[in-house]
Design a protein around this nucleic acid. Sequence first.
RNA 1: GGAGAUGUGUCCGAGUGGUUUAAGGAGCACGGUUGGAAACCGUGUAUAGGUGUAAGCUUAUCUAGAGUUCGAAUCUCUACAUCUCCGCCA
Length: 418
Amino acid sequence: MLDLKFIRENADLVKEAIKNKNEKADIDRILELDEAKRIAQFNFDQKKADQNRVSKEIGLKKKNKEDASDLLAQMGNVAQEIKDLKNILTDAENALNEAILWVPNMPHPDVPVGKSEDDNQILREWGTKREFTFQALDHVEIAEKNGLLDLERGAKISGSGFPIHTGMGARLERALINFMLDYHLIHHGYQEIMVPSMVNPTAMQGTGQLPKLKDDMYRISEDDMYLIPTAEVPITNFYAGEILKNDDLPKKFVGFSNCFRREAGSYGKDTRGLQRLHQFNKVEMVRFVQPEDSWQVLEEMVNDAEDILKALNLPYRVLRLCTGDTSFASAMTYDLEVWAPGANKYLEVSSVSNFVDFQARRASIRFRDNEGKVQFVHTLNGSGLATPRTIIAILENYQNEDGSFDIPEALKHYLPKI
RNA sequence: GGAGAUGUGUCCGAGUGGUUUAAGGAGCACGGUUGGAAACCGUGUAUAGGUGUAAGCUUAUCUAGAGUUCGAAUCUCUACAUCUCCGCCA
């Protein structure tokens, strides 16, 4: 979330950011709630200070065996008054806290203003798109010929969007996950972490999924828990509510998890094969850094994600998302899109974002700097990578005329001959 | 799932209703001492809100929430977490 003081002093800037991000938060209402809360706070504080003072006197008199009945009588209604003022204050706080949770992060000035994905900036492209001497198949056809997927039985057991990987398909999925994790550990110096797939509402609020994305997530109502849409949630919340030492930073974690998304509102879009799923696998990088380092680290993380595609020799491009496409909590996001010749389009396989102090404020992740001052950390995360579309790209780019496909050199070690 | 115990600051730990404004210790930081260090001595050592140019004043927070009371770390209730035992189980 944003600093209330910042909102107070820069209301117009914040309003513009909300508009550019296609969000709807009402800043004027927040300013009113803020004002009301401060008045309520003042009233409560004053009455409570009175009470504390007189109570102390009563204590003193009783200790000295003096009569305190006049003071006690004087305090007759104060307790009830304080209770009422406290209720007013609590209501004001709750209203303000609830409202501010809907305010998105400010986009960085370098983020292009734009409405939709059409306004995203293409920054660079890597690799050469393969020229096919035959009709390139799409991944569903290749998977079918090689027995890699059983989407029908997945739909039977769970529903559409819950794929079953069979035989070499399952091995390839597992190999890819291990390859990506190892690559980040060995070449990029991350620390591996394995986290729960279900989290409580506080964690979801900490990273910014709640309240806005409530309908996009699977909720276990009996236990009031959510299935994670990304490992970002449990990993970033690892330090929630803590004050880290300066020496603890920076932290770099990489973890694999299942990801669960209801994809509400996108039914019928990109439904073929593995393009858009309710459950998929993803390797996620998360960093906790000092504020002055976060923009450089963002570039580093994009490179970390790119290295995976380079190692797999898959053509891709890098986009900087425009304001309208940049997510609620992010200040700047780069997307990596891999080339899928069978589908004849680019597919998003990674999203790398700098949240600056937005998540750190929500989740209260702070550190004590060199001067002993407590500051919010900056958090960043990026996919490194999501497996389904990477699998699509591998199958389509490495396919042969007879319908078989080759294994990328980098994965061979992970797929011993059986 | 059942029974019991426990939850205090960075850590250990005292605190069963009122100068607790959380003792004491350790750690850490700074200063003194020293050729340098250890030991020793001194000082400091939470977070958030309100107010103020500032010093300061003030409010909240002893796992969380609710209650009793003029007054709660302390009493009551609920939730959560940890530990022990029993049951079940990969």
